[in-house]
Simulated assay, not measured.
Amino acid sequence: MSLTAVILIVVLVLLGAYAVSLYNGLVRLKHGVSKAWSNIDVLLKQRHDELPKLVETCKQYMQYEGATLERVI
């Protein structure tokens, strides 16, 4: 085998390794994006579930403050 053929084979192997590495990196990024959107969905769901509880707590506190204000006046 000539030196040119050996160099060509080495270059092709290196290009193949680079292509596989690039593909794996892109797949990793794709999964990272999916995971990030999933986390955002979970946080929005938690916020949606907590909002009515917060409103109810504020209403109860307003009643307490109103009663306290009436007793003071």
Rank of each mutant, 00 (worst) to 15 (best):
L54C: 02
L69N: 03
K35A: 13
S21I: 06
E70R: 15
N39P: 00
T68A: 15
L51I: 10
Y23C: 10
K53S: 03
C58L: 11
I73V: 10
D49M: 03
I40V: 14
E56N: 07
V42K: 10
K45R: 11
S38M: 13
A17G: 08
Q60T: 07
G66Y: 11
A67M: 04
G32T: 03
R47D: 04
M62L: 06
E50Y: 03
K53E: 01
D41A: 13
M62V: 07
G66C: 08
Q63T: 05
H31I: 07
G66H: 12
I40P: 00
R47N: 11
S34T: 09
V27D: 11
L43K: 13
G32Q: 04
L51Q: 03
N24Q: 14
I73L: 12
K59D: 00
S34E: 15
V42H: 06
Q46K: 09
N24H: 05
D41W: 04
E56I: 03
L29H: 12
A67P: 01
G66S: 07
H48Y: 04
D49N: 04
V72D: 08
E56S: 10
V55D: 00
L69I: 06
R71M: 05
R28V: 13
L22A: 14
E70I: 08
S21Y: 14
E50W: 02
V20H: 05
L51W: 01
I73P: 01
T68M: 09
